[in-house]
Amino acid sequence: MTQNPSALDPKKSFQGLILTLQTFWARQGAVVLQPYDMEVGAGTFHPATTLRSLGKKPWKAAYVQPSRRPKDGRYGENPNRLQHYYQFQVILKPSPDNLQDLYLQSLAAIGVDSVLHDIRFVEDDWESPTLGAWGLGWECWCDGMEVSQFTYFQQVAGVECSPVSGELTYGLERLAMYVQGVENVYDLNFNGLDGDARISYGDVFLQAEQEYSRHNFEAADVKKLFGDFERAEAECKALLAFGERDDKHLMVLPAYDQCVKASHAFNLLDARGVISVTERQSYILRVRELAKACGAAWLKTDGAGLVG
């Protein structure tokens, strides 16, 4: 087989874009991780961000995270909206002084040239009510399109960040559409090849978008989901209680999995339209309580830098 350089070209292939970002951040000393194996709404939910951003221990990581937003399903008919998409997430603790420059260099690496394009940092304060987290930062615009989210975490899981982490979230499909000059996400070239060898984003994901949209809006079993929520919530609390050892904690990560499960069940219920406005708030609060308890427990572990 002959080698095809387009397969790795960030301007020609979706995978090339991901690989280039991974290489870039690996060179900056980040640990390149693989996705969290749970259903989450955003890369922030990966414990490498939520939990690792707590405590004093320095931390640098980069990873791709498949993100599910059941409500954003459009049966594969909207060229921009997906219920499942990819985020590229970078977390740097403490936030380096040159974080904006590093970000701009990463854009240059994938072919977004600041001499040719209008790159802007537009105020966008980030808040995740379910995670009990907030930060200040911007949405980053490239020629009027939001391509990334840039946040200095101030609080996560109800805990003040000390030190503050810098978080970058790249919307991979949007960025790829931009650099490939494509108007419909399903037309993205995934593998960078031409002719019969070309695999598009649609080849990989269109059927999934259609099927999951049906699932999210029409078929997901509401009764089961309510049960899932309750069970995950109970399990999370039970595991946290189990792991409690005086000033240490021995079972944060499994408990956190359950918190994330509860959050996803809530998102599906929300997409099914069975949660009223008032109930909505109380569900968000319940997930937040779990996240806060996990965050508090994390601070009692080695991962937070308490020991060593």
Partner: peptide, 11 residues
């Protein structure tokens, strides 16, 4: 109206 901490000094 809203301010923030950053970097190593934020610890």
């Amino acid at each position: 109206p809203k301010s923030m901490r950053w970097g190593a000094a934020s610890a």
